[in-house]
Design a protein around this nucleic acid. Sequence first.
DNA 1: TTTTTTGATATGTGATCACACTTGCTTTGA
DNA 2: TCAAAGCAAGTGTGATCACATATCAAAAAA
Lengths: 243, 243
Amino acid sequence: MQKAAIERNNEAIAAQLAPVGRETVQDRVYSELRRALIGGLFEPSQVLTIRGLADALVTSTMPVREALGRLITEKALEALPNRSVRVPPITLDRLDDLLRARILIEGEAIALAAARMGPRQIATIETILGEWDEMRALKHKKDVDREVTLNQSFHFEIYRSCGSAVLIPMIESLWLQSGPCIRVAIYAFSEAGEVDTAQYHRRIVTALATQDAQAAREALVADISRPFTFLRHKLQSAAKDQT
Amino acid sequence: MQKAAIERNNEAIAAQLAPVGRETVQDRVYSELRRALIGGLFEPSQVLTIRGLADALVTSTMPVREALGRLITEKALEALPNRSVRVPPITLDRLDDLLRARILIEGEAIALAAARMGPRQIATIETILGEWDEMRALKHKKDVDREVTLNQSFHFEIYRSCGSAVLIPMIESLWLQSGPCIRVAIYAFSEAGEVDTAQYHRRIVTALATQDAQAAREALVADISRPFTFLRHKLQSAAKDQT
DNA sequence: TTTTTTGATATGTGATCACACTTGCTTTGA
DNA sequence: TCAAAGCAAGTGTGATCACATATCAAAAAA
């Protein structure tokens, strides 16, 4: 019987080919909206319509409405009583609430990751740091989108190492919720260009390289608190101006 | 001008009438599936089909598929590569992962709540405790469903007091994920009937009544850890039997 | 007897339609 | 001149259909 030979052949084929996967339209819409949300491409309080998004994404309404529903359950979007959906507005309370949750959960994740990151993972995040420096070097063109992307890659490369399939989706949800807020902060930082984000990230890397969970947590808290406190002051002064 | 009179009349009407609200079919399906999931009515690894659920709930497929999509993003259900959806299976790792996350987040929530719960809230959870005792008194009929519901009410009445619009949905998601697992534990406890859950809950109440956040957190951890460690042992011994 | 093939049924996905509700502007009446 | 009624366009929701894929059992081949 040539069963074994066939089996070997199939295995050889399988070794060559990568699984093609099957991404649905709904998945693509969902990813695209997530990207836009985390990147802060939508403004807080902005109203989104199903047909409008479907036109923009060149699909029918069906995938869009399901993607919107999913984002609403993640609190990345908000369902108004009118049944229209909007990006949640920023309030001081919400800002504090989000920051506290992020410190709690991302802090735990990085503490777990500190004990589990090998030289390979450390090298990966150092590569991301290098790309960041490279980008900053040619400073004429301040590409905020790229900053956001690199920042995201840096953090999630760490979180992925925490080994918790439960915490990571929660962190993603938190980023989704804070995305529309922190965009303005990152943009302002990029404008000012003074205190470099890279410096905060470097502190995180050194802490992780020495497997110092406590130091890593503190460095992370400092990093993610910055845009929030910045926004906080901005909102407070804006409120004072209005009165 | 009789504008003021009309206004008064309208206000009088508004005072009598309650807002009718508009729950969509999708919302009802979603709530029903949540209830079933938290209550452990579905078994881990059980496959759910859109048309099957639609028939069971006597609706069309449309609201069901959107509700399923939302539950999948919450990790309450799992999308298989075949595109079928099932209740996530229990593994030891997942159990530990879930418990760690619950201790982290629910612990934080109850610590926050400890400082914010007034006599009114304390009275409410004591009422729930009373209903529990009442139920246990007539022990011939062990109503596991009611136990699950009361347990849920007790915990979420506390969490609601933490004042965090961000943490509460996360806790709901965690309950959704652990629901299918802990059902078997609760059932086993009810069978054995030895160590009463009420005793753990009473410890929580006394800690909250004295606004002792640390004690409340510890009592809560003891309470939610119990079914998990129970299940852990059960799974381990089952694995040992198989070898 | 065991394995492969094949065909029928079941299932998820996306498109389209009908309906109800909301919204904003125009028109009407005071 | 201004507020209220009315109308039209826009929008979300649910139902149904078409199509591609998956599943599983029966039939055919080894």
